[in-house]
Design a protein around this nucleic acid. Structure first.
Lengths: 113, 113
DNA sequence: AGGCTATACCTAGACTTCCTATGTATTATC
DNA sequence: GATAATACATAGGAAGTCTAGGTATAGCCT
């Protein structure tokens, strides 16, 4: 990420996490970091120190549901599903994002437009 | 602004300020707050505690040039122009913003797209 | 056996950015 | 002379992300 990406990311991380889990049906933290990086062509490189506390926070708020799962070839992982409340929140955040992007455009659109 | 707007705003404020000053040729802090609010239909309501320190910071960094001006009907105001370095920086930030918005879309675009 | 890499998660403390709350001062309006 | 609008200033706090460390398992290579 360049110098500003983590600033721009501010407030969008939970939308990205919830959205990805919603799409993937089930995902764990490490996977989400890699998947976001892959999909954005390297633009988003969320740090572990950001991801794991945030997942727990979203779980505590009832937006995600997590459970430990054993793997055949590595350490246990905590897999998350999105809850109905999480889906609601995701939709709200997506709408906020659209409004925000629209507002940026409005500011830069010239007066006569 | 709703609860999240100030989070989404993170890292975009200087782009908005520089962009508006660039468009308006010259502007002062109070004007910028009102103009942003007007143009975004109330979405952006930057606080004075955000605006004034930021303007001074941008001036100190050589991106803006400010001078005090008397007014006929009120207190003095500090008017700002954008410098060549400021325009460069603005273009860079606008490009970053486009990249960021694109990255968000990429993450949410389904695999097959 | 030992070292390296990838996977997978955890935490404390720092940093940046923006907001809150408050203060000063001028002019116009009621 | 009280209030509102204009106009700027500042200290302290809140929120979100990063830094920089840590633990642990499994596979691969020498």
């Amino acid at each position: 990420m360049n110098d500003y990406s983590s600033n721009l990311l501010h407030g969008n991380t939970d939308m990205l996490i919830l959205g990805l889990i919603d799409e993937l049906k089930s995902a764990h933290g490490y996977q989400l970091i890699k998947e976001m990086e892959r999909r954005s062509h390297g633009f988003f490189q969320l740090k572990e120190g950001t991801m794991y506390p945030l997942l727990r926070k979203l779980e505590n708020e009832g937006l995600l549901e997590g459970r430990w799962e054993a793997t055949s070839n590595g350490p246990e992982r905590r897999c998350y599903l999105i809850t109905p409340r999480g889906k609601e929140f995701l939709n709200y955040r997506k709408a906020s994002w659209r409004d925000f992007a629209k507002a940026i455009d409005l500011v830069f659109r010239t007066e006569t437009a």
